[in-house]
Design a binder for these strands. Structure first.
Lengths: 224, 224
DNA sequence: TCTCAAATGTAACAATTGTTACAAAACAAG
DNA sequence: CTTGTTTTGTAACAATTGTTACATTTGAGA
């Protein structure tokens, strides 16, 4: 357990022994979930910090009609709900469920406060984690603020390329189905837009390998 | 100055005298802006905490084609950029400009760290502020995740009603132009949707007074 | 290799939203 | 009250995206 935790962003910089000492002084529990199990519903009060110690979970926003916008996957050993433990509105913004057989470490808010007071490293880690969450969500927001599908797709492709060393050759890591869910659009719409880019000679798409042929043209076609 | 700051969420719980003492030990500056002045561009590095001490600023996301999604107004004495000072990606997610004649207090990151180490109150205030930011942005994200305009509008109206004591009588505080910007849609589209709701007898709209006549019907029509 | 399930391509049509342009109404200032 | 400006209502049409349905391709196992 401590081995996993020492790799978690919240406990980075602490030795396993130190982590062990800290945990000897606080209340916590672990809980197991099977694939598909509901962990928390959007709107639920958030009273504890949770850390994925095995498996992975996903967070999704669901609207009244049941439509889903996938926000992210959180694999071990990452924490979850860091940004919703403090502040005025302690509610999960997303519905969280298990992607697979998963184990969570659950630490009540009070114990988190204790950890922050006891370990300066934990405190700064926690502060950074909350900031990172805000930044991640901002990125999502920015992404959704692109109003056209072309815009989202162009931005996504170029962002992926930037992450994958700017070679212009992109390897998609998701199915179109998943991408469409991420973009909040229908799958055939995504497929169509991909094809349009291809037919305009802006990209070369074959299966999940995509090559950006014309960056400027892509931006130009997507925006304005 | 200290009088204003004592009302700021970051310095809440501190007496003016305490604030004065803290500021005697740190580096800071104030800067003035005229209406419309650019304060920071989206993507700029964020090295300092800023607090609006006079006037107000607005934050907007701008995409490549120049389309704008307004995120929020920040009036005095609120801080800005709290969630982007720490964490991995210290960049403004939004473009910030002055709504009117405005004065900002600018505190470099290092001094912020000093404040956190010196004043426990400031530390917890700061932590709460960052969490609140994450929660605010999540709310925005949730709002944008409603895919149809009907959905956004219905949600917005019912949320406003909740804030305004559930009377069913809503007083819009913004022009349709501003609302459309907030929703990320074209103004005539918003007007049309409002009229549709009206014609269906779900609401009664006269100018900026709106009466919700049929909550269930509203949700049903908006989210099928 | 063969088979089946999953993923992708595609088309026709519906629904929603954007664009543009102009008229009517509301509002503020003189 | 009058005038000029801002806001709102509205219509016609364009553009985008959703929906549904089916064909085709791909990929993992048997």
């Amino acid at each position: 357990m401590e081995t996993i935790l020492s790799k978690s962003p919240l406990f980075a910089g602490l030795k396993e022994e130190q982590i062990e000492n800290l945990f000897a002084k606080i209340v916590f529990q672990t809980r197991k979930y099977d694939k598909g199990d509901l962990i928390a519903s959007g709107g639920d009060e958030c009273r504890s910090l949770m850390i994925v110690v095995k498996g992975s979970v996903k967070g999704e926003m669901v609207d009244y009609s049941g439509r889903v916008l996938k926000i992210e996957d959180i694999p071990a050993p990452r924490p979850l709900a860091v940004a919703f433990l403090f502040g005025k509105n302690n509610r999960f913004p997303v519905t969280i469920s298990a992607n697979e057989s998963t184990e969570l470490l659950i630490i009540p808010k009070q114990s988190v406060v204790f950890l922050m007071q006891t370990s300066e490293t934990f405190l700064t880690n926690f502060m950074n984690a909350v900031s990172n969450r805000a930044q991640f969500i901002s990125g999502k927001l920015r992404f959704l603020s692109f109003k056209t599908l072309k815009g989202k797709l162009a931005h996504y492709l170029m962002e992926l390329d930037r992450q994958q060393k700017q070679t212009g050759e992109i390897q998609l890591m998701r199915t179109q189905e998943e991408l469409a869910e991420l973009f909040g659009v229908a799958r055939p719409s995504l497929s169509r837009t991909l094809r349009d880019f291809h037919h305009q000679g802006l990209i070369k798409a074959s299966g999940r390998k995509i090559k950006i042929l014309n960056r400027e043209g892509l931006l130009e076609d997507a925006f304005d």
